[in-house]
């Protein structure tokens, strides 16, 4: 099949989103498809430029660009799904979150508030015209139902390089890898370290705009002996970091999907996440494969202390998590088969 994949691209952003787009394309190619990737240059502001991009995509005909007939278009992000094709499959990574669940009417400029209405209208119109609608997770599907009144089927995919992850002897630390930014809520975990009674350490992986803030926070609370921002890590280190962790903590706010809990489960580690973390709640079963707690430092600290006090239970939860994730049989092959059906 000749397939066009559309996605957005905020220049110089390197996150899970970028890798996800690439992974889909290589999975499609692996299954023998001819793939072209269209990436729309995306900026979060000004509103006028978002509008311009939306207008550009709206109805842009991809049926047979330059006489080359295209069999299918798969769109992952706003606003690519507004482009026109008779077999247009939407597989939502997320919508433009600032216009949806992150929209705060008290915070928004009047200009963005107006734009927001147009985005919702655009998404509703474009996505209701799609041949099939899939979402990265039930959470993403639920938002689509809530805001746009449209149904979508959750279509899961495995996190990158999950085959390499494995369980090693637990050392006395919990691990939280993510971009250092507000929505990931590293601050909850740093604060939690103040409440923890166990000697368990906290290793926070990744880089991001909040690095300074978090580092200052650690120093201010005198937690340098407890909490460490370890920055970037290599692929091999990732395996060791997951492998030796007592547990993996992922308190991010309303994630679309969240690779980290999945990775933790492949590494047979219990996951501590929060009741408002979104996507992870579809995988983590409280008390069986991890702990789902209130988004508060004290609650996180308690959960970590519980696991630290009973390493056997932690191991057992980890094992259950691995079994659970393996039973879901996440694979790109299945994703490709579903999207191309």
């Amino acid at each position: 099949m000749r397939i066009i994949v559309t996605a957005s691209q905020a220049p110089f952003f390197h996150g899970g989103g970028e890798r996800h787009v690439e992974n889909l394309c290589s999975a499609l190619r692996q299954q023998g498809h001819d793939v072209a990737l269209l990436r729309m240059p995306f900026k979060f502001s000004p509103a006028a430029d978002i509008e311009r991009l939306m207008a550009f995509c709206d109805g842009y005909d991809l049926a047979a660009p330059n006489g080359r007939e295209v069999d299918r278009v798969i769109s992952l992000q706003f606003p690519g799904w507004g482009m026109r094709h008779p077999r247009h499959v939407a597989w939502l990574m997320h919508q433009h979150r600032a216009a949806y669940e992150l929209f705060d009417v008290n915070d928004a400029t009047p200009e963005f508030a107006r734009l927001r209405e147009r985005i919702v209208e655009y998404d509703t119109r474009a996505l209701s015209a799609a041949t099939h609608r899939f979402a990265n997770s039930q959470r993403v599907a639920a938002r689509l139902r809530q805001y746009n009144g449209l149904q979508a089927t959750a279509l899961y995919h495995p996190p990158p390089d999950h085959e390499a992850l494995r369980c090693e002897e637990s050392w006395d630390y919990v691990f939280f890898p993510s971009r250092l930014e507000g929505l990931k809520r590293q601050d909850l975990l740093i604060e939690a370290a103040r409440h923890m009674r166990s000697s368990t350490k906290v290793l926070i992986g990744g880089e991001g705009p909040h690095h300074e803030r978090y580092q200052r926070m650690i120093e201010r609370h005198g937690l340098t002996d407890r909490v460490k921002l370890i920055g970037r890590f290599s692929d091999a280190e990732r395996i060791a970091l997951f492998g030796h962790a007592l547990a993996v903590v992922f308190p991010a706010f309303d994630e679309d999907l969240g690779y980290v809990p999945l990775e933790a489960m492949y590494a047979a580690k219990p996951v501590v996440t929060c009741s408002d973390s979104g996507g992870p709640l579809e995988f983590v079963v409280h008390g069986q494969t991890g702990e789902v707690v209130e988004p508060s430092p004290a609650a996180l600290a308690e959960a970590i202390d519980r696991l630290a006090a009973d390493p056997g239970r932690a191991r057992e939860m980890g094992r259950a998590g691995r079994e659970h994730i393996l039973s879901m049989r996440l694979s790109w092959q299945r994703v490709v088969a579903t999207l191309c059906a």
């Binding site: 090693e168 050392w171 350490k201 460490k228 370890i230 692929d235 091999a236 280190e237 395996i239 030796h244």
Partner: peptide
């Protein structure tokens, strides 16, 4: 060894020590 630095150090060296990780790579 159980301080955050020590843990990280051990994790980093654990990676070095394991040929099978290299094999997997």
């Amino acid at each position: 060894r159980n301080s955050p630095q020590g843990l990280v150090w051990r994790l980093a060296t654990a990676v070095d020590d394991r040929n099978r990780i290299r094999d997997r790579d």
